[in-house]
Write a protein that binds this DNA or RNA. Structure first.
Lengths: 254, 254
DNA sequence: GAGTGGTCTAGACCACAGC
DNA sequence: CTGTGGTCTAGACCACTCG
């Protein structure tokens, strides 16, 4: 038993799962717990029931419930301590960086993204591009340059390259959907991306396109994406206006 | 069976675990697999044996072997596809952003970090600091400002704040160890950090300290760290010279 | 249809925290 | 000592991919 003054543990009476649903049970539990956290029903700092009791009260096995908790720990909503228990993190921020496109990010935020295709064609892979995409130097790669707006404001200058022949893209589609969406529809399943985030000063061309002054700070994001067979399928180098955009991420130990 | 031309699957004959070791079995397996990957014994694009066969040949249960594979998938070394198998990612990059301090990063890279303590004392929490650390506005917080060098080059301007009374720090220690190391030694176990990465132009003071020109692009990193009870224990806002530093991270779907 | 990873169970024992 | 999470087992069935 804990000393007095501790917040009461979460009553799990409200958690129920649908065994007929195709949604995995552990994920259903994770969503319900997350809901309880964001709704305040499970306030910051409060303790969960222990895993065994939780499993029993939901009617699932301990490993399944544990997996749900693990998922929320990885996302930064819960912390665990052996011998003590599981508690809700005292933080308001919860928006881990995920493997979605900027287009999706903006759509979710209700920002009405708009995209202008600046160029679309083929070029020979530079050494850097060849290394990232694991193709021969000089091999033909598809290159798309786009300018993304949020409302009327230019936000980001996006340049994506994919190995030639991987998919067929229509220039018209690029203006109305995220790049990753298009790849997904074309059957490319991106499972993994390696990114580097840095900063540079805008040169004259970049400044003009983005509506910043020359020398203004820009966030750079270079990303190599890999499909479900481990092959590099996309290399992007992107520039964001630092005045309008930043990256959030959650790190966990282990 | 797969069609001809596929790379041979990994011979697991070399994987052995030590059941007497305190290191978890799944982690021993993960390390051995990682070793086989980085050594080239398990080349990029090659397939692993299926989980059941792998488990049997190592002499472990499937869930344990599966957990090892999961760990490497999360770190971006392997990709899995249901109905197909597990393959090594065709990437050279493997340095996920981890929950370690910049000091550790530089030490590992053999860069001889050096730290100059610019100021050390208490101040009243500003609204932003109070919100991050979940203390009353105006409450006393410990503030440390440091300038980090790599060799002779200034690299980063670091400002850390911790709630007053959490730990007792010696100014002299700050010059010779990472901030997180000190917290760990003081019994603070950081389990989670929420970060925001952006960019700004250097102002006059920042430029002078960092040896850049005014207006030079700087990477910003703001981090709130939480201990194993979910309490915020540190808030840092840091500036890095974009010409010398960038962040790498690996993103996985799900 | 054969082979793969994805999910789930019902136990077991251990390591650690805190009284 | 009790209670907690951490690890591990030996099965089971399902969903998906591909020939």
């Amino acid at each position: 038993m804990h000393s007095g003054g501790e917040a009461a543990v979460f009553s799990t009476s409200s958690i129920a799962v649908d065994r007929a649903s195709p949604v995995p049970l552990y994920y259903q539990v994770a969503l319900e717990l997350e809901q309880a956290i964001v709704s305040g029903q499970l306030p910051a700092g409060s303790r969960l029931e222990n895993e065994i009791a939780l499993a029993e009260s939901i009617g699932l096995s301990r490993p399944t419930v544990r997996r749900a908790i693990e998922y929320l720990v990885d996302r930064g909503l819960l912390v665990r301590k052996r011998g003590v228990g599981t508690q809700v993190v005292q933080s308001q921020v919860r928006r881990p960086l995920e493997l979605t496109s900027l287009y999706d990010d903006l759509s979710r935020a209700g920002k009405e993204p708009r995209t202008e295709v600046l160029s679309f064609g083929r070029e020979q892979a530079s050494p850097a591009v060849a290394r990232a995409l694991q193709v021969e130097e000089g091999a033909s790669v598809l290159v798309v340059e786009r300018l993304r707006y949020t409302g009327d404001e230019p936000l980001a200058l996006l340049r994506n390259r994919i190995p030639d022949g991987l998919v067929t893209l229509q220039e018209s589609e690029l203006a109305t959907a995220g790049f990753y969406d298009l790849l997904r529809r074309a059957g490319v399943r991106i499972q993994l991306a390696s990114q580097t985030v840095g900063a540079v000063a805008a040169n004259a061309v970049q400044a003009r396109l983005l509506g910043e002054k020359r020398g203004a700070p820009l966030l750079t994001m270079n990303r190599t994406a890999f499909d479900d067979e481990g092959r590099p399928v996309e290399y992007g180098d992107h520039l964001y206006r630092a005045s309008l955009y930043s990256f959030e991420l959650v790190l966990t130990s282990h």
